[in-house]
Amino acid sequence: MGIALALLGAASAALFAGIGSAIGVGRAGQAAAGLVTEDPSQFSRALILQLLPGTQGIYGLLIAFIALSNIGLLGGNVDTSMSVGTGLMYLFACLPMAFVGLVSAMQQSKASVASIGLVAKRPDQFGKSMIFPAMVETYAILALLISILAINGIPR
């Protein structure tokens, strides 16, 4: 039961953060395509803004890797007798990345879409336009940090 809970935590981090990023990158991609339709020279700028909500999926993957590695699933020496308490610890340690990843990716995509609109109007303001969605990234990084610290703090 403990190992199942730990696995659920690792899966949640990859799953929810990945879903958030997929929605976010898709959303920003639509706006980027709109901008490039009108002005193909803005492709690289639009692409960078589109990719910003994609980082949460990578963070989720990283947390899942660390969790799977710590519970031994990657090395082949899985601890099937893991206690429910330890399993729950892994589950809760992964939750910050899972939920903050999901929500921040979706919110960041809205900021990216707005920034793509900004670049459409003022291509010279690209630098500033990146800052707005990047601010949302802060919270994904904080969640990533907490999840890493929490997983590494679980006694093995």
């Binding site: 639509q30 706006a31 709109g34 901008l35 339709t37 002005d39 609109g117 459409a120």
Partner: peptide, 17 residues
């Protein structure tokens, strides 16, 4: 409303004209 990302980005460019 959430499905107008592409359209609004194009309109933003057109607003320049």
């Amino acid at each position: 409303d959430n499905q107008y990302y592409y359209a609004v980005a194009r309109i933003r460019s057109r607003e320049l004209g």
